[in-house]
Design a protein around this nucleic acid. Structure first.
Lengths: 248, 248
DNA sequence: CCCGTGTCTGTGAATTGCCTGAGAAAGCTG
DNA sequence: CAGCTTTCTCAGGCAATTCACAGACACGGG
């Protein structure tokens, strides 16, 4: 039997005429840096990566990134020193920190005051991409991180990536964090079948080791909230995956 | 092992003016690599193959493929290391992973996140070709893998490979996963007789051991769905096979 | 016009894939 | 720390799908 899984797609095209957004990834865990780079390239961004603080500073110098993804735990110097050096010569670049969940929240909190942001490890790729997009959009250094709006619209369904608000037909709907990310991923790929594996890859944390049927479960949750009563927008393609599209 | 065989024409002449799409196949099971290579050449692509990771990296260097088909289980290094090396010197090449069905959960996690894709063994050739086509189309490195749209059209029959939707004369038609693949194969070869053996080879998994009359059965299913009432588009050539063409 | 081979299709059984309720565990909030 | 929310596992149940089988049918050569 053939498992049919949909090809993967991106929502928007890739600003073919503009110089691409440049992102520097700084993390000493190679596989993680690799994973991030792949995901960010897929967003149409140009990516360079460095494995330590010294390398980061060097790379920043000639790469001149529009944003930096920075692990706060690095072998040679800690993230804060790296940040200091980056800022010294390159004041405005927005930074997305990667930090362990239990790590000193306060220090990070202070840092993000400047308009930077952070995500805790383990993260989901959707999360990182979304935050980065927000940072770049707000920094304005590169005019667009692929889209100018922070709102996704499919039919009468609206999702605001900034406020995390969802509404259908004007009526506000409460969704949990996971539901939100799943819905965002679906809405960024409207009318495109997304396989359970793809969804798992993007929406769940990279170290998630659970059952693939969480996806089914959350689809079920979303349907109860989004499609309840109304014309269904979330559709199952048996043997292939799920897709969202406006009701007729 | 590195085999090079000249690209081979077929169906419509693919991009006669352009340099052909180049695909690198990496698999240590020789018969499988052979099967794949043949199928891909048949698509009009230029194929090279390698049997291990080292060979893959070497081949990539001078062959500069537009896409790579990569078995995640290789004798010398695992697929991830190969991927790493390929990416290091050749960042944007899209990769289609081949993986055992049950290995999906752990090893593949994260791989498809970057826009790559995968199929599980045993696969159908139709599946592999379709995925590869999608990857190449989206990567944009080679502008066209034969077509720019994700939609196949024959007469008033339309099949969308992204949404997995089929419609005739504007009326939407539900098809199952197998029906979808069969129809896709027919529509990709309009007005051309396809033998039952060919269909079995392309649409069913390569290890399918069943009765050859499943093809007849599924043709029958498709006819009920797409030809019902209307001018028939699926025709039988007794003793030869089937073909699809627009009604008069 | 008849027969044989090749094709079509109804029936039904086994399998697979999906949905969802119940509840355990972990996280948050006040 | 108690109570509420959220995430996730597990397992039962249902429905769609796949496929084998076998008899009916149709085409075309003689």
């Amino acid at each position: 039997m053939t498992t049919t899984i949909a090809p993967q797609g991106r929502t928007e095209l890739r600003r073919p005429d503009r110089t691409p957004v440049r992102v520097l990834v700084v993390d000493d865990e190679a596989p993680l840096a690799e994973l991030l780079s792949m995901a960010l390239r897929y967003e149409g961004w140009e990516v360079r990566s460095a494995g330590d603080g010294a390398g980061a500073v060097r790379a920043a110098r000639d790469f001149r990134p529009d944003a930096v993804v920075l692990d706060v735990m690095l072998p040679d110097m800690d993230g804060l020193s790296v940040l200091g050096r980056l800022r010294r010569e390159y004041a405005d670049v927005p930074v997305l920190f990667l930090t362990a969940r239990d790590a000193v929240e306060d220090r990070i909190a202070g840092l993000t005051a400047g308009g930077d942001d952070y995500v805790t490890k383990p993260f989901s790729l959707e999360e990182v991409v979304a935050r980065l997009r927000g940072l770049i959009r707000r920094s304005g250094s590169a005019v667009a991180a692929g889209r100018s709006e922070s709102t996704l619209v499919v039919g009468d369904l609206v999702l605001d990536e900034d406020s995390h608000e969802v509404s259908r037909g004007g009526q506000s709907i409460h969704v949990t964090a996971t539901e939100f990310e799943l819905l965002r991923f679906l809405m960024r790929n409207p009318r495109r079948v997304l396989s359970k594996a793809q969804i798992l890859d993007r929406v769940w944390n990279y170290d998630f080791g659970g059952q693939a049927n969480v996806v089914e479960l959350y689809i079920s949750y979303l349907r109860k909230k989004i499609d309840a009563g109304r014309t269904p927008m979330i559709h199952t393609r048996r043997g292939a995956g799920y897709l969202i599209k406006p009701g007729e």
